[in-house]
Design a protein around this nucleic acid. Structure first.
Lengths: 358, 358
DNA sequence: TTGTACGCGTTATCAA
DNA sequence: TTGATAACGCGTACAA
């Protein structure tokens, strides 16, 4: 046992300790650790042996400090200016960026208008010049997203998906919600709050349902809840409502719906526009209609507090942005194995606990 | 404008940049930053000026790397061996410790038996010799906790409280649940799931209620929900049940209760023992009794999945441990201002979303 | 009161 | 195939 120069204080083993014990220099140890070759097999084995003996863990701080490498990440997400919903994911991205800055991570946001395919294409196109090391994207437009995902795959740029899952070209990870399960949950809440049977309306407000797989999954989950429980006195009907911006015509559609189904028990709104239905119920002074929707938009929260919306299902949108970036960093910087699918909790929000989620 | 030696690459300002611009040495800048004195006022002002101009942010990594300081934290929490509930906070502490280890943080757990005041005192006593830099404690025993908190205050050791709030000797922060609000929430769930009025039982299972302020707050919140809404056909009755371990006597108590209140609508169990009531309901084949409780214990989850427990309110116990440690580190290491009260979300758990919380 | 120089653990370069 | 050494940004002991 020789104790030359500096002692290993604190019990954490360093490269230096390994080098010493293996009778080589730190350079050699480094080459072994990073498989850079140029090490004789015997020495290599000896070093590996010592490494596992001392169960060495590299010091992330020192590593990040010395590697002047910069990682440029792109966040391809809808512009919060067009839809309040996207403020939260955007904030999540910012927070992750903040936390990872000391590690040389820089995230640039490329925003698009979620109602304009062309703006998505333009934003996606603009990524190519920069040479990003990783991409985090909310692939709202299925077909267009596909083609860019193929391109990124070919270029070898890893990308994370969130909000909408498109598994075709394997993303590094999907972060988001289990749409089907959230439908089931909505069914449960509706059932739990009902005094008896009736018609449950699944309302798609201003959506292109056939092209939105997640809406279909939500619907399916909701229907299956009642089916699996054999609740035959509950009917589930899917309706499309268009143009919620024009109150008069929108309310007219709902009037017609109420005439058609006199025993309406409640609405399950499959996107964040529950407030549009709530406004109608308020105007027509309809009581005892259950209303379950998604997302903590200010308007939704207002109606939640007034008691017109009973439950909102929350998908932790901020977390989606945050983990989208963080998991990319885990992959690029820290060589961590990332889970291919990370479902975020389906939070049940009501008037009495909403304050803790905003 | 002179550009000697190294250029500032990447746009992040370093101490060296400040020194250069202010025409002093890095040592002086360092003394200014850390208020070590021994700097002439003029120079000090000039340096501060430059710092704010360049809005300098210290590099946490380099700082942690160079400061060989070790921070010893103590976690004074109940032994998970006696109560499964405490596994989660314990894990949270471990995770925070793991994350902060590169920064020289070491957390030592001092466990006590939550049913034995003496073991708490012994554990708390054992902290004193070590000389901890910070303490994270779940102060289950009010009076005894008070005396230790006073001692720590006098010794100048910062401490964080979680699970139970005792504001008398100002803790650095309280992390946990808003008991009153969780009672309100339980009331809402019970009301929402009821088909009509009846008696709601607030069940304290094996608890010393008078000495547990958080139980009283839960009860109060639950009662206030019905009171504030003017729901006069709902009666709320508080009952104490003892000895859930002895099934026969425990079930007998419940038999008596059901005789006394024939119109029982449901139970609100104020601690994590909802499973004890669920077992009774199952044995007696009682249907349509609502059951709302706390905490994701395995037994609770099992009954949740069987449909006997309808909702569990979750206080993110892992988060309590995690943030308890993290906020202490924010205070000690990173000089961050920590919020004095951090309420964790009141998660509503049901069969359909429980999978995302475990 | 101020400046210089070394070290923290890791990586990368260069000479041997 | 190896080893010595200079960085990375910051803190600090010590010299001036």
């Amino acid at each position: 046992m020789s104790h030359p120069s500096k002692e290993n204080i604190g019990g954490v083993t360093r490269i230096k300790d390994i080098a010493e014990k293996a009778g080589v220099s730190t350079g050699t140890v480094d080459r072994v650790i990073h498989n850079r070759g140029k090490v004789s097999p015997q020495v290599r084995d000896r070093v590996l042996q010592v490494i596992s003996e001392l169960n060495y863990e590299p010091n992330v701080l020192a590593r990040a400090l010395v590697s002047r490498r910069n990682y440029r990440l792109a966040a391809l997400i809808p512009d919060p200016g067009y839809d309040e919903y996207w403020e939260a994911p955007s904030k999540g991205v910012d927070e992750a960026q903040e936390q990872l800055r000391p590690y040389g991570v820089e995230v640039r946001k490329h925003l698009f208008d979620q109602n304009d395919v062309e703006s998505f294409k333009a934003a996606a196109e603009s990524l190519s010049d920069v040479g990003y090391n990783g991409i985090v994207v909310a692939p709202l437009f299925y077909r267009e997203s596909l083609s860019y995902m193929r391109r990124w795959s070919q270029e070898g740029i890893p990308f994370n998906l969130f909000n909408t899952h498109i598994p075709d070209y394997k993303p590094l990870a999907y972060i988001g919600q289990d749409s089907y399960q959230s439908g089931l949950l909505a069914g449960k809440l509706m059932h739990f709050g009902s005094k008896g049977g009736g018609t449950c309306l699944i309302a798609h407000v201003d959506e292109d349902v056939p092209n939105s797989s997640h809406l279909i999954k939500k619907e399916q989950g909701f229907m299956d809840y009642f089916q699996e429980k054999g609740l035959s006195d509950f009917k589930t009907i899917s309706i499309d409502l268009k143009g919620y911006g024009d109150e008069i015509s929108f309310h007219k559609q709902l009037d017609v719906t109420f005439e058609k189904y006199p025993d309406i028990l409640g609405f399950f709104v499959t996107n964040s526009r529950a407030y549009a239905i709530a406004a109608y119920l308020q105007k027509r002074a309809l009581k005892n209609i259950l209303l379950v929707g998604y997302d903590l938009l200010q308007k939704n929260i207002a109606y939640l507090n007034e008691g017109l919306i009973h439950f909102l299902i929350n998908q932790n949108p901020k977390g989606q942005g945050f983990y989208g970036v963080q998991m990319m960093a885990d992959h690029l910087l820290f060589n961590k194995q990332v889970e291919p699918i990370r479902y975020l909790p389906l939070d049940i929000i009501t008037k009495e606990n909403v304050q803790y989620y905003i």
